[in-house]
Amino acid sequence: MRKDLKGLVIFFSLIFLFPLLVRNPYYIGVLVFWGIYSIITLGLTILMGYAGQISLGQAGFFAVGAYTSGILTTRFGLPPWLGILAGLGLSLLLSLFLALPSLKLKGHYLAMATLGFGEIVHVVLNAWVGVTGGPSGFGEIPALSFLGWKLDSEIRFFYFTWGWVFLFFLFSLSLLKSPYGRALRSLHAEERIPLSLGVNVYFYKVFAFLWAAFYASFAGSLYAHFMTFLSPSSFTLILSILLVLMIVVGGLGNLWGALLGAGILTFLPEILRTFEDFEMLIYGIFLILIMIFLPRGLVSLRRGKVATGD
């Protein structure tokens, strides 16, 4: 734990210094995206790396958080924090509806069910034109205000977002070091084993789903108030797949891996700007190569043995 805290302090110090050194708002904006995606991956890595489940539908919860917050603030004039809470509530409810029946599903079936969920959300975003604005989306989402400070510039949003990433990272770390974390890690084994030791496997599986949905929804709300414009094309199946891909590439079940993975997700398109059309191709190859040669993810390159619960 201590090592992690040290790393946390160093890393976040560097992050918080960044906008002071690099003034270009475009690059600061890119890092805001890194922060937003990191929140999603931090949640997802608990679900996939610790509880050993799979979700190919996180873009769905990301969308629910974003659209709920966006719609409630533009159409109903509600304050943004209420929009965020509503988004969280709706996502938790939806993930409950997804998680409970999924308890009996294994591997591929679960993957498909979550994939199906994500796609349903996408279809609804496109089809429910009256509420969501359909394929063209909608805009004029108000900026957030934090303690009277209006978050309408990249740099302000940057600190706000990364402040939350820091908090979410700490919460995740706390969770993992606690009895909850142990129980979650025991879910990797065949169900009957933790069951025979009194672990309520069903509770923890649902819990992990709710946790991941919570994080994704919050990230979505941040996204909405940052972009001030939403359209269904940002919430595709491809995003869900890329999120899983990045967790896996970064290292399943490792909080730092989640940050790393989110970083790759954010920076690769920037680096590959000239090769924009080949982006997906490269992701695909990357994914396949990692699965074949480094199934524990990039993080396993650093330590000899992948330490768990780190």
Binding site: L56, G107, M280, L281, Y283
Partner: peptide, 30 residues
């Protein structure tokens, strides 16, 4: 892609086929 994998876990296999799916989509896009 599938043949060379030594100790395939369900998750590995799912991810590899997803990777192929993305790769083929990427090729098509290009």
């Amino acid at each position: 892609t599938l043949h060379p994998v030594k100790n395939p876990t369900v998750l590995n296999m799912i991810i590899i086929t997803i990777g192929c799916s993305i790769f083929l989509k990427g090729v098509a896009l290009s």
